[in-house]
């Protein structure tokens, strides 16, 4: 039997496994980023940050429901200056593990994306993720940039002008034509795409309290319920753009990850699965993926990429 190799290459950077810790999950501290890296991540994404600190929404902000999670954390973060310290500490811890660090950024207006990145450059993250797709701050910040190809391209161009490091742009599924947005950000200089951010927003109402449960009333959906939407988005994007895609949205098992890769993803983001499976999620998924590859006779991940598109 052939050895199975789970490593993948993303923007010229080797990842030990295809699993990327998704932004907004467990990425708040250097110690947590290191812990996830030690437990099977190929790359880790820190919590999205803005120039100024944000308190985020009041609680409840993250809730489990039967399809996964619903959240409206509201982009709580300590601000870019404090994030420099967290990222630099994380990088020192991750370097010996061979796990690259992705810094995630957002801003209130397109030009602001460049400002955050210029501050974070001091921490030397390996890649940037441009978060133009948070659905939970519409009341404050208006519609996400990802809703409009022109705005999405502006935010991307601002980051592109601020760094030479690889730039990943994270897209929203909550648009009529995700491929139009994907093409626009690639034309503006994106080196890779991440798809999808949370779906919705959605709402849960407690019928005894007679009120929405999230303090923000509505929030983004993640977890198993959104996986088919994510797979479709990755499938369409991989036909529309020539850049690698980090496929994410409800991936919970190693076989879910294979599905995402067969849809066309180069790497696979994991977030809500840490709720279902705990800190051992990525190790379990790696074992499941390896078992599938052995069963089906695949030696490396790239052999499976895009197979669902047929000949």
């Amino acid at each position: 039997m052939r050895d199975t190799d789970l490593s993948v290459e993303l923007c010229g950077i080797r990842l030990r496994t295809p699993f990327v810790l998704a932004a907004g999950v467990l990425g708040t501290t250097a110690a947590l980023l290191e812990r996830v890296a030690r437990r099977g991540a190929g790359a880790v994404t820190a919590k999205s940050c803005s120039v100024r600190p944000r308190r985020g929404h009041p609680n409840p902000t993250v809730l489990p429901w039967e399809g996964g999670l619903i959240n409206a954390v509201g982009l709580a973060n300590p601000g870019a200056a404090a994030m420099v310290g967290i990222l630099a500490d994380a990088r020192r811890r991750l370097a010996p593990l061979g796990v690259p660090l992705i810094a995630s950024v957002f801003a209130e207006e397109a030009g602001g994306f460049g400002e955050v990145v210029r501050i974070l450059e001091e921490a030397e993250p390996d890649l940037y993720e441009v978060n133009i797709s948070c659905p939970n701050v519409a009341e404050e910040l208006g519609m996400p940039f990802a809703a409009d190809p022109v705005q999405a391209a502006r935010a991307t161009a601002a980051v592109r002008a601020a760094t030479r490091r690889p730039v990943i742009v994270k897209l929203s599924p909550n648009v009529a034509d995700i491929c139009a947005v994907g093409r626009a950000v690639v034309d503006a200089g994106a080196d890779a795409l991440a798809a999808i951010n949370t779906l919705g927003p959605g709402m849960l109402i407690d019928i005894r309290a007679r009120t929405p449960v999230l303090a923000n009333r509505m929030g983004g959906l993640s977890g198993p319920a959104v996986r088919p939407v994510a797979v479709r988005c990755v499938y369409e994007l991989s036909r529309a753009v020539p850049v690698p895609i980090i496929g994410m949205g409800g991936v919970t098992t190693g076989e879910d990850a294979v599905e995402m890769i067969m849809a066309g993803a180069t790497a696979v983001g994991v977030g809500s699965a840490f709720y279902q499976r705990g800190m051992g999620a990525l190790e379990a998924m790696a074992a499941e993926m390896r078992a599938f590859m052995q069963e089906q006779g695949f030696g490396c991940v790239s052999e499976m990429r895009g197979l669902a598109h047929g000949a």
Binding site: V25, T29, V73
Partner: peptide, 13 residues
């Protein structure tokens, strides 16, 4: 925040 091990708010350090 979440109480269920995903948001990262309660890292003990």
């Amino acid at each position: 925040r979440c109480g269920i091990g995903v948001c990262g708010s309660c890292d003990r350090g």
